[in-house]
Design a binder for these strands. Structure first.
Lengths: 150, 150
DNA sequence: ATTACTTTGCAAGTAGTTTGCAAAAATATT
DNA sequence: AATATTTTTGCAAACTACTTGCAAAGTAAT
């Protein structure tokens, strides 16, 4: 089988998978949503909204639509957000089988990811990887008792 | 000793402590810096820049100065930041003896803090505290090998 | 006290993101 | 399949949190 046939098959798969995911999450199936979700399925990220917009085929949708779609994906938990640089959201497909976290270089802003999930061990591993001057941010989000009642 | 004398003493202490901390971190001692740092020493936070500005005595300084001072405090690690709501930084005094993390209610945005620092245990404890639908964000920051060389 | 350097207030600017609204597309109903 | 209903989109304008340029004021060093 020639490779272009194979890659075409993959695109179809991504589109099919996107449609399935959209429906499963109660979102209607539109061209921009399919494109954005396919992109996030194909490339791992995390990407900023602007990066995603630029990666889409030209004129495939407006930047406002990218933001709207991403927010809907976050609401339905199809997508996770990371806030790695001040004031700049990064988005990536939420694959529970590949739970991971990120490290960003304070200087060049390159983002790397890792799969450890216990703090001391993580920091030791990052030191072994050559990172220096490590800090972290850990934040939890939930619904408090008061809001559960209301 | 009457209580107002006691509280006056405390204010003096905070001012003295602020001056000491500013000098120790190579920052010149100005009225806005003293006021902002004293506030962060007195109240635990985390507070947004706007909250801090509103807590300061009227006309004590400009909002731009609050941002500038807070950024300097973060650079010198006098202050830590948390990004709990999208696009809104929160600041609090960095007290290494009281390392902690935050949980914010997804609905009412009330911020609570806790001192556990191992993920599974934290989540169990938060569930015991009555929070539901818990998610977390854990991000690391460091200087990568490439940037160390450059 | 004088000089050199730093910080501040003000107003304008910027980046990232959101929103109102009419047109277009998607889904539901017949 | 055609129509009605609901949802989504593009566009432009608005918005929020934050930053910046510059002259005036304050701080620190001599």
């Amino acid at each position: 089988m020639p490779s272009h046939a194979h890659s075409h098959k993959k695109v179809i798969d991504l589109e099919a998978k996107s449609i399935e995911l959209l429906k499963a999450n109660g979102l209607s199936v539109t061209a921009p949503r399919k494109m954005i979700l396919s992109l996030l399925l194909k490339e791992h990220g995390p990407f900023s909204a602007e990066e995603i917009f630029k990666k889409l085929p030209k004129y495939s949708c407006d930047q406002a639509t990218v933001y709207r779609c991403l927010n809907q994906f976050v609401e339905t938990q199809l997508v996770n957000t990371a806030y790695l640089e001040k004031e700049l959201a990064h988005f990536e497909f939420n694959d529970p089988q590949h739970h991971h976290h990120h490290i960003i270089c304070k200087l060049c802003k390159k983002i790397d990811s890792f799969h450890d999930c216990i703090l001391d061990k993580i920091e030791t591993n990052l030191l072994k990887k050559g990172y220096k001057d490590i800090q972290h941010r850990l934040e939890f989000f939930g619904v408090c008792e008061t809001c559960q009642k209301a």
